[in-house]
Design a protein around this nucleic acid. Structure first.
Length: 146
DNA sequence: GCCAACGTTGGC
DNA sequence: GCCAACGTTGGC
């Protein structure tokens, strides 16, 4: 899951313990949270749009999906006037801090053959939430985060 | 700031 | 339904 550290960094998550993953306004990314993720699923916390993009820590899905409250808040940057209370358009999950890791910077991620097909690394990928295969998860957590 | 690679919008 | 124009993401 990508986050701009200016908005929510791994340190912010460590301080808060849990964060609602607000602000996703892309249907594919929403579908991952709403339809694919399960309570307890592992999360690679990725810092994007910053001086050193890369994986900065581990987290965990800590809620079932529920409507993103910011879509109904006219004062929010994420307000969606077309979304109705009775048919919310945007869902999210809560994400719980697990631990910080040494930063695995984007150029380093690109060097590993085992990660060659990782969705987040694909050319032109802009999705803020992408799936990680079990093999990719094992490779990153076991080999790189000892 | 640039630009590739999308996704969304809206006219038709 | 098509597609051009526009907006966004995100690395560099």
């Amino acid at each position: 899951m990508k986050s701009e550290p200016d908005e929510a960094s791994i340190d912010d998550l460590a301080t808060r313990g849990t964060l609602p993953w607000t602000g996703v306004r892309n249907y594919q990314a929403r579908n991952f949270m709403r339809d694919v993720m399960r309570l307890g699923d592992g999360v690679l916390f990725y810092h994007s749009s910053c001086p050193e993009p890369g994986i900065a820590g581990l987290a965990e899905v800590s809620s079932a999906p529920y409507p993103d409250p910011t879509q109904f808040d006219p004062k929010s940057d994420y307000y969606d006037k077309a979304s109705k209370q009775e048919a919310p358009r945007w869902s999210l999950v809560d994400v719980k801090f697990v631990r910080k890791t040494p930063l695995i910077a984007l150029p380093a991620l690109r060097e590993y053959d085992a990660l060659a097909d990782m969705v987040v690394l694909r050319r032109g990928n802009r999705l803020s939430i992408t799936p990680v295969t079990p093999a990719e998860w094992r490779f990153i957590t076991e080999k790189l985060m000892k």
